[in-house]
């Protein structure tokens, strides 16, 4: 008889092979390969931010009025802000805030939406109707406006902005999940499972949900970027992060007062946003190519 370990290895190996194949397919696209590298660098930067920042003290409250608004130089490679803090150090910490927020928001929204969508798709009847009308209503608001309203009413802070975003970002996931659940539900392997006598919950969790996950992953990877953008916009309006938090949108907002004379102060945080969001969108694009059955067919 095979040992337990051997069995685990045998069942794990094909899964690993599949993963390698997907990775290989995605790496055919040079842009998404590059974005992958950028993203890895960003994640590392985010994790290590307080330790690798050249001026860790500048990340939050320190003030060096003597070196305020200096252009990029050897000491401060991206210059300094209005109270003399090193912009590069603050940007590094900003990576941490943005990535963490977007991961938390997207993850929670995706899970919540997926469960709701799966319930709507598999239970059907009035549950489906009610849930889908609710998502319709949420999606009838222009995207950021409802979030602005929520976070304004909750009070301006990063925490409240995150809560407001969570309240408004789940509907697309619910709808995606529900639509694919409706398709998958009719697949013969689900019928076969029903004929076997598998319980409904097990069918939903083991058969339907794993096969609906692809569009969800694509949506999530695209949303990571969109969430970062929206969070920056909220902060820009004064609703998200509060000074002295080194949030990118907030930095741009503060820099507005000085931007004609000290362009670096506005430009670099913006570039950070663009690069991060672009990398995430490109990865989403690459994932779509790999996961979408339409493109995988041949």
């Amino acid at each position: 008889m095979e040992s337990f370990f051997e069995k685990m290895k045998k069942s794990f190996l094909p899964k690993y092979k599949e993963f390698r194949l997907s990775l290989h397919l995605m790496n055919r696209n040079k842009l998404s390969q590059l974005s992958m590298i950028i993203l890895i660098i960003l994640v590392v930067a985010a994790i290590l931010a307080p330790y690798i920042a050249p001026y860790p003290g500048d990340i939050y409250g320190e003030v060096h009025m003597g070196s305020a608004l200096q252009p990029p130089s050897k000491d401060h490679i991206l210059g300094t802000d209005e109270v003399g803090r090193d912009i590069f150090s603050r940007l590094l910490q900003g990576t941490r805030i943005s990535l963490a927020c977007s991961i938390i928001i997207v993850l929670i929204c995706a899970v919540f939406g997926a469960i709701l969508g799966a319930a709507a798709g598999t239970l059907g009847r009035w549950i489906d109707d009610v849930l889908m009308r609710i998502t319709d209503i949420f999606m009838a608001f222009p995207p950021l406006l409802l979030t602005i309203a929520f976070s304004a009413l909750l009070g301006a802070s990063l925490k409240n902005a995150i809560i407001a975003m969570m309240l408004t970002w789940w509907p697309p996931y619910a709808r995606l999940m529900r639509n694919s659940a409706l398709t998958i539900r009719e697949r013969p392997y689900v019928k076969a499972a029903e004929a076997i006598g598998t319980k409904k919950l097990r069918i939903t969790v083991k058969h339907i949900m794993p096969n609906c996950i692809a569009p969800l992953i694509i949506q999530a990877s695209m949303d990571m970027g969109a969430v970062i953008l929206s969070l920056a916009s909220l902060s820009f309006l004064g609703l998200g992060a509060q000074s002295p938090q080194p949030e990118w949108g907030l930095m741009i907002s503060t820099s507005r007062a000085y931007f004609l004379n000290c362009p670096w102060y506005s430009i670099f945080p913006g570039l950070a946003i663009v690069i991060t969001v672009l990398a995430m969108n490109l990865i989403g694009d690459g994932l779509r190519e790999v996961l979408d059955p339409k493109t995988k067919k041949n």
Binding site: L31, G225, L229, A232, S233, F236, G249, I252, S255, R256, F259, L260, P263, S266, I267, P269, G270, I273, V274, V277, L278, N281, L282, D285
Partner: peptide, 25 residues
């Protein structure tokens, strides 16, 4: 394709500032 993705990745408020800087500043 690349520009279409870049276009949706740009924070509009930042782009506004950048354009102001170039065309006005």
């Amino acid at each position: 394709r690349f520009s279409s993705i870049t276009f949706v990745s740009m924070p509009s408020f930042w782009l506004g500032l950048a354009l102001q800087l170039i065309f006005f500043g």
